[in-house]
Protein backbone atom coordinates (compact mmCIF):
# COMPACT_ATOMS: atom_id res chain seq x y z
CA UNK A 1 0.00 0.00 0.00
CA UNK A 2 2.61 2.55 1.05
CA UNK A 3 6.34 2.19 1.40
CA UNK A 4 6.12 3.39 4.99
CA UNK A 5 4.08 1.24 7.35
CA UNK A 6 0.83 3.02 8.16
CA UNK A 7 0.32 4.38 11.63
CA UNK A 8 -2.68 5.36 13.73
CA UNK A 9 -2.75 8.82 12.15
CA UNK A 10 -3.18 7.26 8.70
CA UNK A 11 -6.52 5.77 9.73
CA UNK A 12 -9.02 5.51 8.10
CA UNK A 13 -7.02 4.62 5.03
CA UNK A 14 -9.97 5.14 2.69
CA UNK A 15 -10.01 8.78 3.78
CA UNK A 16 -6.35 9.61 4.16
CA UNK A 17 -5.11 7.85 1.02
CA UNK A 18 -8.06 6.84 -1.16
CA UNK A 19 -5.95 6.59 -4.30
CA UNK A 20 -3.70 4.05 -2.60
CA UNK A 21 -6.48 1.74 -1.50
CA UNK A 22 -6.49 -0.75 -4.33
CA UNK A 23 -8.48 -3.84 -5.14
CA UNK A 24 -6.98 -7.10 -6.42
CA UNK A 25 -7.06 -5.78 -10.01
CA UNK A 26 -5.35 -2.57 -8.92
CA UNK A 27 -8.50 -0.52 -9.28
CA UNK A 28 -8.60 2.29 -6.75
CA UNK A 29 -11.64 3.28 -4.70
CA UNK A 30 -12.20 6.22 -7.02
CA UNK A 31 -12.41 3.92 -10.02
CA UNK A 32 -15.15 1.83 -8.47
CA UNK A 33 -18.08 3.80 -9.83
CA UNK A 34 -21.72 3.09 -10.40
CA UNK A 35 -21.06 3.49 -14.12
CA UNK A 36 -18.43 0.79 -13.97
CA UNK A 37 -20.90 -1.56 -12.36
CA UNK A 38 -23.60 -0.71 -14.89
CA UNK A 39 -21.39 -1.44 -17.86
CA UNK A 40 -20.04 -4.61 -16.24
CA UNK A 41 -16.38 -3.60 -16.08
CA UNK A 42 -16.39 -3.99 -12.32
CA UNK A 43 -16.74 -7.47 -10.87
CA UNK A 44 -16.99 -8.91 -7.37
CA UNK A 45 -13.26 -9.57 -7.61
CA UNK A 46 -12.68 -5.79 -7.66
CA UNK A 47 -14.43 -5.54 -4.30
CA UNK A 48 -12.19 -8.00 -2.49
CA UNK A 49 -9.83 -6.91 0.23
CA UNK A 50 -6.16 -7.45 -0.61
CA UNK A 51 -3.34 -8.90 1.49
CA UNK A 52 -1.63 -5.52 1.57
CA UNK A 53 -4.76 -3.80 2.89
CA UNK A 54 -4.96 -6.38 5.68
CA UNK A 55 -1.25 -5.98 6.43
CA UNK A 56 -1.79 -2.22 6.59
CA UNK A 57 -4.68 -2.67 9.02
CA UNK A 58 -2.47 -5.04 11.02
CA UNK A 59 0.19 -2.33 11.23
CA UNK A 60 -2.41 0.16 12.43
CA UNK A 61 -3.81 -2.30 14.98
CA UNK A 62 -0.31 -2.97 16.25
CA UNK A 63 0.46 0.75 16.48
CA UNK A 64 -2.76 1.18 18.44
CA UNK A 65 -1.62 -1.48 20.92
CA UNK A 66 -3.64 -4.45 19.69
CA UNK A 67 -1.16 -7.20 18.82
CA UNK A 68 -3.72 -10.02 18.79
CA UNK A 69 -6.02 -8.20 16.41
CA UNK A 70 -2.99 -7.50 14.24
CA UNK A 71 -2.08 -11.19 14.25
CA UNK A 72 -5.60 -12.05 13.14
CA UNK A 73 -5.34 -9.57 10.26
CA UNK A 74 -2.01 -11.11 9.24
CA UNK A 75 -3.54 -14.59 9.25
CA UNK A 76 -6.41 -13.13 7.22
CA UNK A 77 -3.94 -11.59 4.81
CA UNK A 78 -2.71 -15.11 4.06
CA UNK A 79 -6.23 -16.44 3.69
CA UNK A 80 -7.01 -13.94 0.93
CA UNK A 81 -4.99 -16.26 -1.29
CA UNK A 82 -6.92 -19.33 -0.24
CA UNK A 83 -10.02 -20.24 -2.25
CA UNK A 84 -13.35 -20.32 -0.54
CA UNK A 85 -13.79 -24.09 -0.76
CA UNK A 86 -10.37 -24.71 0.80
CA UNK A 87 -11.22 -22.30 3.58
CA UNK A 88 -14.49 -24.05 4.27
CA UNK A 89 -12.87 -27.49 4.10
CA UNK A 90 -10.12 -26.43 6.50
CA UNK A 91 -12.63 -24.92 8.89
CA UNK A 92 -14.67 -28.10 8.76
CA UNK A 93 -11.60 -30.20 9.47
CA UNK A 94 -10.76 -28.03 12.49
CA UNK A 95 -14.15 -28.70 14.09
CA UNK A 96 -14.08 -31.31 16.84
CA UNK A 97 -14.19 -34.92 15.69
CA UNK A 98 -13.99 -34.13 11.97
CA UNK A 99 -10.39 -35.20 11.64
CA UNK A 100 -9.99 -38.74 12.85
CA UNK A 101 -6.24 -38.45 13.36
CA UNK A 102 -3.59 -35.82 13.76
CA UNK A 103 -2.14 -36.49 10.33
CA UNK A 104 -5.22 -35.06 8.59
CA UNK A 105 -4.71 -31.68 10.21
CA UNK A 106 -0.99 -31.74 9.58
CA UNK A 107 -1.74 -32.47 5.93
CA UNK A 108 -4.13 -29.50 5.80
CA UNK A 109 -1.40 -27.34 7.32
CA UNK A 110 1.12 -28.54 4.78
CA UNK A 111 -1.23 -27.71 1.90
CA UNK A 112 -1.82 -24.21 3.27
CA UNK A 113 1.90 -23.68 3.67
CA UNK A 114 3.01 -25.10 0.35
CA UNK A 115 0.17 -24.27 -1.99
CA UNK A 116 -0.89 -20.90 -0.61
CA UNK A 117 2.24 -19.66 1.13
CA UNK A 118 0.14 -19.34 4.28
CA UNK A 119 2.71 -19.92 7.00
CA UNK A 120 1.01 -18.30 9.95
CA UNK A 121 -2.22 -20.15 9.29
CA UNK A 122 -0.31 -23.37 8.80
CA UNK A 123 1.47 -22.91 12.14
CA UNK A 124 -1.90 -22.29 13.71
CA UNK A 125 -3.42 -25.47 12.27
CA UNK A 126 -0.38 -27.44 13.42
CA UNK A 127 -0.83 -26.09 16.92
CA UNK A 128 -4.46 -27.22 16.80
CA UNK A 129 -3.32 -30.65 15.64
CA UNK A 130 -1.10 -31.01 18.69
CA UNK A 131 -3.76 -29.72 21.11
CA UNK A 132 -6.47 -31.95 19.66
CA UNK A 133 -4.21 -34.93 20.22
CA UNK A 134 -3.58 -33.92 23.83
CA UNK A 135 -7.29 -33.45 24.48
CA UNK A 136 -8.49 -36.52 22.61
CA UNK A 137 -10.53 -34.66 20.00
CA UNK A 138 -9.89 -37.12 17.19
CA UNK A 139 -12.93 -39.09 18.06
CA UNK A 140 -16.06 -39.87 16.14
CA UNK A 141 -18.94 -37.43 16.64
CA UNK A 142 -21.36 -38.26 13.84
Amino acid sequence: MTAKRPRVADYPLAETQPSKVLGPNCRSLEELTLQGIMDGTITMEDLRITPSALEAQADIAEAAGRPNLAANFRRASELTRVPQEVIMATYERLRPGRASRKQELLEAARQLRETYDAHRIADFVEEAAEVYERRGLYKFRY
Binding site: N72, A76, Y91, R95, P96, I121, E127
Partner: peptide
Protein backbone atom coordinates in the same frame (compact mmCIF):
# COMPACT_ATOMS: atom_id res chain seq x y z
CA UNK B 1 -16.11 -25.94 17.60
CA UNK B 2 -12.79 -25.35 19.30
CA UNK B 3 -10.93 -22.12 20.00
CA UNK B 4 -8.77 -22.95 16.98
CA UNK B 5 -11.66 -23.53 14.59
CA UNK B 6 -13.28 -20.28 15.74
CA UNK B 7 -10.04 -18.35 15.44
CA UNK B 8 -9.67 -19.73 11.93
CA UNK B 9 -13.17 -18.51 11.14
CA UNK B 10 -12.30 -15.08 12.55
CA UNK B 11 -9.40 -14.83 10.12
CA UNK B 12 -11.60 -16.13 7.29
CA UNK B 13 -14.11 -13.31 7.80
CA UNK B 14 -11.37 -10.68 7.88
CA UNK B 15 -9.86 -12.19 4.72
CA UNK B 16 -13.14 -11.42 2.94
CA UNK B 17 -13.30 -7.89 4.32
Amino acid sequence: DTPWSKAFLAAAYASRG
